[in-house]
């Protein structure tokens, strides 16, 4: 398995973040895991990285329901950023709202990045599948 440099988790629920981190760490597939409590903090960070010309995260785990900037708003801004590389974005949600599925379809078709839609809870083997570079 190819080692990933940076994975980014965007979720406001500390328990989910704890679990994700734990699973990723046990898989030993990446060097750095960054977490952000909402979309705003994450997008600001990514913009800084682009400005500094540093390396972007290769895989992003994205929650939908978050304060200030939710997952969809983050995704909207993210796909508009001038990013050449393909980034893998895994949407992780407990939502069963069909409109969320439709939104995912919409964004998936709109961008060259890989966008997946996953329902909670996420198992360890699923995390491994989702952590392959796009």
């Amino acid at each position: 398995m190819t080692k990933i440099n940076t994975i980014c988790i965007i979720d406001d629920d500390p328990i989910t973040v704890f679990g994700m981190r734990k699973m990723l760490q046990s898989l030993l597939i990446c060097n750095t895991i960054n977490t952000f409590g909402n979309g705003k903090l994450a997008i600001d960070n990514i913009k800084t990285i682009i400005a500094e010309g540093a390396a972007l995260p290769e895989v992003i785990f994205l929650d939908i329901n978050m304060p200030i900037m939710d997952g969809w708003q983050f995704l909207q801004e993210f796909i508009e950023l001038p990013i050449q590389d393909k980034v893998r974005i895994n949407i992780i949600t407990s939502s069963i709202d069909s409109t969320d599925q439709k939104k995912w379809q919409h964004y998936k078709d709109k961008t060259h990045h890989t966008v997946t839609y996953n329902n909670k809870p996420i198992r360890k083997n699923e995390i491994a599948q989702m952590s392959i570079v796009a």
Binding site: D13, I15, N65, K120, P121, I122
Partner: peptide, 17 residues
């Protein structure tokens, strides 16, 4: 459903650990 599911997901994940 959303709220209960997110909690149950957390329970199940934590219990797994």
């Amino acid at each position: 459903s959303h709220n209960l599911r997110s909690h149950s997901a957390n329970f199940s994940m934590l219990l797994d650990f």
